[in-house]
């Protein structure tokens, strides 16, 4: 399910079946590395969408959480935990945070949700067959990880 009206309507009528929420964490920063930053944003968005497609009947894909990379992580954690606390009331039993940024991993204990670190895809052509294949492989593995929690 996506965060759009038609899907949310479906969610409301089938709430007991949808117990998993996914929040992509995407860093945004205008520094020298603009291109790479935009590329990572694109890849993680596509990856989350594909994951949602694969397991659409049990997961809800939340809007992406954007943050400034160099900003104090402790403050971000407080804010992110507010998100988690809010959605848990629905209730969502499993909440997964997806990110390429290993910085979160260190503070994983402080997060109220399961953090999934995905190794970064450094560069490439987003439309190419190889990229589609890589993303599909990753989606498959993340899907398996999520299913092991169910």
């Amino acid at each position: 399910m996506r965060w759009q009206k038609s899907d949310v309507d479906k969610y409301v009528s089938a709430k007991e079946y949808i117990d998993t929420l996914i929040i992509p964490l995407i860093d945004f920063q205008m520094d020298q590395d603009l291109e790479n930053n935009a590329f990572q944003n694109e890849v993680l968005t596509i990856l989350s969408n594909e994951l949602e497609k694969e397991l659409t009947g049990r997961i809800m894909l939340a809007p992406s959480y954007y943050y400034i990379k160099t900003f104090d992580k402790d403050q971000e954690i407080v804010r992110l935990n507010h998100w988690v606390e809010n959605v848990k009331k629905q209730p969502f039993k499993h909440i997964f945070l997806l990110s390429f940024d290993p910085a979160w991993k260190k503070s994983e204990q402080a997060l109220d949700a399961s953090f999934v670190w995905i190794p970064k895809i450094q560069s490439g052509d987003i439309g190419s067959k190889e990229m589609q294949h890589t993303i599909r492989e990753q989606v498959k593995q993340i899907g398996e990880l999520i299913r092991s929690y169910w």
Binding site: K10, A14, Y17, I18, K53, E54, L55, T56, G57, R58
Partner: peptide, 8 residues
């Protein structure tokens, strides 16, 4: 596509 809620 599963006819229940649309998973694969």
């Amino acid at each position: 596509i599963c006819t229940h809620l649309g998973c694969v």
